[in-house]
């Protein structure tokens, strides 16, 4: 038994026939063919599937596609605009906050909401704020720097150096 639903993702409408049990992440990746959001676990622990639903970050593996009808869904594919990259994308690139790139979309979506709610977070607030997202490659130092850099950029403050610092 399937159900016809329409999902609004990054402003575009995607109409699809899905089983009621289908997870939102599968609908986004397979039915809407937006493969930027990823799947890294089966226990809602890793955050690779994080998207924004009505502006709030959510692990799209914990939500059924049918529950997301009528909501505004934002994924990594919608971050950049005609004017260019979103500051969080620039921040991740300039601060070398990604290696394999698999966790990156989820982390960036989480960071977007974090900065929305707390435009000027401390390092501790950033670390706790992204603790629902696992990254196995970077060791998090540069993800923290990327979010700090983005915070400065979004507030028009002086930008921190993105050159690596050595002892």
């Amino acid at each position: 038994m399937t159900k016809k639903i329409t999902l609004k993702i990054n402003g575009a409408e995607h109409t699809m026939e899905v089983e009621p049990r289908m997870l939102l992440i599968h609908a986004i990746r397979e039915n809407a063919s937006l493969t930027g959001s990823h799947i890294g676990c089966d226990t809602s622990s890793c955050g690779a599937c994080t998207v924004l639903i009505d502006g709030k970050s959510a692990k799209s593996c914990t939500i059924l596609a049918v529950q997301a009808q009528g909501k505004e869904i934002a994924t990594v594919e919608g971050l950049a605009t005609a004017e260019g990259l979103h500051p969080i994308q620039e921040g991740f690139h300039l601060n070398h906050a990604l290696h394999c790139g698999f966790c990156t979309p989820g982390l960036m979506m989480r960071a977007v909401e974090l900065l929305e709610k707390n435009p000027n977070p401390t390092e501790d607030e950033i670390r706790w704020g992204i603790s629902g997202n696992l990254c196995r490659c970077t060791g998090y130092n540069n993800i923290v720097s990327a979010i700090q850099w983005t915070s400065a950029k979004m507030q028009g403050k002086e930008l921190p150096s993105t050159e690596p610092k050595f002892v």
Binding site: G36, T75, L79, F92, L98, T104, M108
Partner: peptide, 12 residues
């Protein structure tokens, strides 16, 4: 390589 990964255009 970052350009594709930060824009959701990696191909895994």
């Amino acid at each position: 390589e970052d350009a594709r990964f930060i824009q959701g255009k990696g191909n895994y």
